[in-house]
Nucleic acid binder design. Structure first.
Lengths: 113, 113
DNA sequence: CTTCATGCGTAGAAAGCCTACTTGTCAGCC
DNA sequence: GGCTGACAAGTAGGCTTTCTACGCATGAAG
């Protein structure tokens, strides 16, 4: 699926993935891919800058570690990030409900209510 | 709510509103506002260009009419637009499912399943 | 030694929405 | 008559976010 539809929700996804434990950038991409059954295959050019943005915003913190000669920057959620994630989640529910009011209630849909 | 989150879903919303019957631009904005309980209050600078885009794409057609001396451009869904809307709807479901996999399954959420 | 998977990163382009503004009619009020 | 506010359409420029396409480096496999 087009990741362009993510616009504005990517940060929430990244925070949600990191909520389950610290990961480095490459692993975040894999977590999103496997966790979505292959639907989300984000390019590094999308994820890395986004993680930096989250770090600048104070939602995540990063630490360097060298594993097998490979440099890894491991990201982990901060307390502030946890609060941000909660906000993103409620924002997501609101968004889903609002848009769903128009798109879920179709003429030939499995009416949800 | 921030309409920026719409990014990519606005077209689907407009098509969905017009599915219920032809409307002019201003009425589309009101339909979105009332239909969303005030959540979606889109500025004209967002809606009008979007409707033009949909017209260029062949998803809607417009006709001018003058009511009480006021010029109205009424938009209505084309057959192509109906097909596009169906695609947008399935795209929306996929998007919702995929993102929901990460954001709905929170630690303190009303688990949907 | 070449290729591939892992791993990080940047630069420039493209897309989409928002803010702010303009134009015009009509109704109501002073 | 002049002013304000709701209705109705539209444009221009800016901002944010994501994507495409690259570059650099290590280690394992052939």
């Amino acid at each position: 699926m087009k990741a362009q539809s993510l616009h504005g929700h990517l940060d929430a996804l990244l925070l949600a993935v990191l909520e389950q434990g610290p990961l480095h950038g490459y692993a975040v991409i894999e977590a999103l891919r496997t966790g979505s059954a292959g639907q989300l295959d984000l390019p590094t050019g999308t994820v890395y800058p986004a993680l930096r943005r989250l770090e600048r915003a104070g939602h995540v913190a990063s630490t360097w570690s060298t594993v097998n000669g490979r440099e890894r920057r491991t990201y982990q959620l901060t307390d502030d990030g946890r609060r941000a994630l909660a906000g993103e989640r409620s924002g997501w529910r609101e968004f889903r409900t609002t848009v769903g009011r128009f798109l879920d209630t179709g003429p030939a849909s499995t009416a949800p209510a």
